[in-house]
Amino acid sequence: MSQSLAPECNEVKERYDTCFLKWYSEKYLRGLGTTDNNECAGLFKEYSKCLQGALKDRGIDKLLDEAREDNKENDAALMGKKK
């Protein structure tokens, strides 16, 4: 798996990535993973908590907020919602 930008998050990231990949290939692609409240949710929460601090320290959190705002059109086009 790839590294985290925050070395202190690498260990939990590795565990989350492994869990996700298993879920994706064995459940999601077979139509069995229809919710994000799955076996990896706890690990993701832990990883996110670690990452949030690192993003804030580096000032990346603010850049991300702007990028999310700019991405709204893509969301509308690609989330496949029928109006």
Binding site: S2, Q3, S4, L5, A6, C9, K13, Y16, D17, F20, Y28, G33, T34, T35, D36, F44, Y47, S48, L51, L64, M79, G80
Partner: peptide, 12 residues
């Protein structure tokens, strides 16, 4: 050098 997942959701 790094790839981090920020959020992940499945649309029901």
């Amino acid at each position: 050098v790094a790839v981090d997942t920020l959020s992940r959701t499945v649309d029901p």
